[in-house]
Design a protein around this nucleic acid. Structure first.
Lengths: 201, 201
DNA sequence: ATAAATAATGAACAATATGTTGTTTATTTA
DNA sequence: TAAATAAACAACATATTGTTCATTATTTAT
């Protein structure tokens, strides 16, 4: 009745993941060969196939693992969009940045540089979109928007991701609280009013 | 002194491009083999190498060609960010959407679906970023922003691209004028005020 | 501590794609 | 119509993939 995984399995797996993340940043996902991974992880090429079906399978599992953590991080953030509450938006942003700051290297590999994994960005964007949309659908006000809700949501999500990626790319140049606060202010009060720039009609 | 290109060259090149764009949407860039392209374009595999170095070279040239057109489209749009002028932002957006609407199929292949070319999105984003940044640097007001300029620019560019891609993905559901007008309004007056949603502090 | 289980190694294989080099055929231009 | 050249065709060497099978090493459980 012992479910402990063989130590060798754990060790090999760890080596593969580590080698993989390194190689992604060095030469980009597509350029990586299984032999590259095996060499770097110091295992036989065959051993790789004992753990993963192929390269896409390895990528998928790495990606899904990280995404799962994001989901878990924000799952219990309250979210309300109608009426719009600055604080709930701010909280979601804050929670995600917090999480990222504790796993910087992974997110660096996934979201920064010319070798970034766009698949990851795509999926992460979808998670955020779903979360924000949840705030829209759950509240039941009337929907007389002056602007297409789809456009509005897309705008918001894109900006959301853009700010996050900018933050990671620049090595977390501002404290979590400041970024989330500034972001939600721009969203609420408008880009330039929030920034203190004169607005001409 | 005749510089006319051989008809055969033009015909072959056209076939290759057409086949390539089709295949991108059908199976995705990475999955395409040179033989796939040759088959579809009804040329010998060798002939491909007479025109392009390899697959990345073909992609690059397709991408750069499209990007050049975007640059040309917006190069003479006036742009001012300080003081912020809604109309200049709106004009840039409008110009780009106009251009896209006349070349939908290419942009569909590049920016929509699971087989989209993220390299293209990246480069297009950079072009827009440079253009908007130009509006910042050219005007010489004092720079006492309450918010990080970098963050502000990233926010704006991401939202800009997000709206464009949303628009293409949904088969141009709104007229060019409406999208650009709505977009610039959200930027200027804030997400929810522009949309007529109640804002709670 | 040792036997049984199983993970990892190493070698060999077919299959596929790449990029290159000749030679021949067909088409276009001058 | 002749010269130029694009395209076709065949043949290579090379690299990567994914698989099989026998052997060795390590770990777990008794």
């Amino acid at each position: 009745m012992n479910k402990k995984t063989d130590l060798r399995v754990l060790r090999t797996n760890q080596s593969i993941r580590k080698a993989f993340y390194e190689l992604i940043q060095e030469k980009g996902y597509e350029a990586i060969t299984i032999q590259d991974i095996a060499d770097r992880a110091m295992i036989n090429r065959n051993t790789f196939y004992l753990h993963y079906q192929d390269k896409p399978d390895l990528l998928d599992r790495c990606v899904e693992e990280l995404l799962e953590e994001i989901k878990n991080a924000i799952v219990q953030c309250p979210i309300s969009m109608r009426p719009f509450s600055i604080s709930t938006l701010e909280t979601v942003m804050q929670t995600i940045l917090e999480h990222i700051s504790h796993n910087t290297s992974y997110y660096q590999a996934m979201l920064v540089g010319e070798n970034k994994i766009y698949l990851f960005q795509s999926k992460m964007e979808k998670i955020i979109k779903d979360k924000l949309n949840e705030g829209w659908t759950s509240s039941h006000g009337k929907s007389t928007l002056k602007i297409s809700k789809e456009l509005l949501l897309e705008y918001l999500v894109s900006a959301f991701m853009g700010v996050i990626i900018w933050w990671i790319k620049n090595d977390l140049p501002l404290p979590v609280e400041e970024v989330s606060s500034q972001f939600s202010k721009i969203v609420a009060y408008g880009h330039f009013k929030a920034a203190g720039i004169t607005v001409e009609e």
